[in-house]
Design a protein around this nucleic acid. Structure first.
Lengths: 202, 202
DNA sequence: CACAATTTTGCGTGTCACGCAATATTACTG
DNA sequence: CAGTAATATTGCGTGACACGCAAAATTGTG
């Protein structure tokens, strides 16, 4: 799609650095004091930035904490598209997820995931982001099967259940402290089936 | 559990009336002007109540609009528990949902559902409520299968996928304007399978 | 170096969540 | 039918926040 990776101007690099910095500080504050005690003013001060600038990057502190916590939907879509067409939908999704969760998450990701599950305001913010992910996955599933992923029920259902399965697996793994996340994802995918999508369907 | 249904004092009746009234006014304002233009002050004035009292019932206008939009988890749990034990988990869930969605939703429910999907702030608020629903369903599924619905993966996965399927079906039905919601739910449930849960599993 | 584009910043405004204490309403008891 | 305890409503004040707007600073370009 848009691949301007190499020519990344100073401008864009600085913006991304500021954004990542603000997000990291926000997460740390939230872990140390609790989300409700996080103050935008303090985050901005620590990042050497005006408070107004914070709200220039994020509409709320929750958004800052969540930022970059969402697994990238584009990556999942790419992996799904890369699976051989002979595989059933369920097999292709499983294989894509096994690749997506190839490397175990780092400490920041884990503590952030725990925090999101513990704090309703963060959970709500994350749900908004997951909606976009789900739609993107539905579109890719639809493309793969030759149907409209935006309107037909089947691809949307498949996307919704897969995202739900990932959530359940992550939540289980966070609670269980046992085995790898990859294994939890795999076990989840093995415990339900998604019907293949027939292109000729109504 | 707690069954004080008949002896419902004046106090409780008034509270419920005020709550329902505030919620209805909030929904109407949101439909007419958009959520961002809803003012707590106006809702309170129309309900002949102090603005402070509004925040006594709801922590935000979004919560007021959402209130009573969530399908009742207790009802789904009851219906699930009422299904004969010979049925597989998937069959029992399907049957329970068919009963739960026996009567088609009214106009208020539909317009609210549309609004929730269109407005991210409402979607986020609804997601919080759905989390509770999911946990309750997981507990009931676990009880039915004789495993711990709070810790084991299987019941949580089943609950998550079922809730996701309901969401997908509702969203599809709202877009399609074709057939009944009941049919959409049934079609969704027929397009994926949930593994039965073995009580002896680790 | 000058000039255009973009970003940062400060300021003001309207909205909101919530603690607290005073007041009003409801429930209960002799 | 009081009188009293429990609970709900209300007004007020405070801290925080989202966001529009325009001036100032920073970056990209010829």
């Amino acid at each position: 799609m848009t691949m301007d990776s190499p020519p990344l101007g100073l401008r864009e690099r600085k913006k991304r650095a500021v954004r990542a910095n603000l997000s990291a500080i926000a997460l740390r504050h939230a872990l140390e004091r609790g989300v409700s005690q996080v103050r935008i003013e303090e985050i901005a001060a620590e990042a050497d930035v005006s408070p107004r600038t914070f709200n220039n990057y994020f509409p709320s502190k929750e958004a800052a904490i969540i930022d970059s916590a969402t697994m990238r939907a584009e990556r999942l879509c790419e992996l799904l598209a890369a699976q051989p067409g002979e595989l059933s939908l369920h097999e292709a999704l499983s294989a894509a997820l096994m690749t997506l969760f190839e490397d175990e998450p780092d400490r920041d990701w884990i503590s952030r995931a725990r925090l999101i599950r513990a704090e309703p305001s963060l959970f709500a913010e994350a749900a908004k982001a997951d909606l976009d992910i789900e739609q993107a996955v539905a579109l890719e599933i639809g493309r793969r099967a030759g149907v409209d992923g935006a309107t037909c029920l089947a691809p949307r259902l498949a996307a919704a259940t897969v995202v739900a399965a990932i959530h359940a697996a992550v939540a289980f793994w966070l609670d269980a402290n046992d085995g790898t996340l990859r294994e939890a994802i795999g076990e989840a995918m093995s415990q339900f089936r998604i019907a293949d999508i027939a292109p000729g369907g109504a």
